[in-house]
Amino acid sequence: MILKKKDLFLIAFFLCLAAVLLLCFNKNAGTGIAVVERNGTELYRFDLGKQKGTQVIDLGGEYHVKLLVEPGAISFQHSDCHDQICVRTGKLSKPGQAAVCLPAKISVRITEGQKTIDAFTG
């Protein structure tokens, strides 16, 4: 028998998987620069487009804040703060996104990466 019902399920499953993966990848194509600030002063700067592998940044302090830097994304991995808003904000990957841990006064925001230069004047 050339085609059985399960074949169709198999095909459908993998087509869906491919579609979902495509959507995920497009969403996570973060190329911005993550700027980490405490109380307004810059602590770190990560180029998410160039980040290779995951990295945990322990910011310590009263709330033992830990950041998780991945290729294309950054997130609060841990904070001892009460509301946990920063952790629940999840992964930031697009320019303009930001997460803040108010009690610890730590903010993470993503700014646009270096734009390509179209021409030089002068």
């Binding site: 179209d118 021409a119 030089f120 004047t121 002068g122």
Partner: peptide
């Protein structure tokens, strides 16, 4: 859709 980015030397 982004503007042209002209670098000033």
């Amino acid at each position: 859709g982004t503007p042209w980015n002209i670098a000033v030397r």
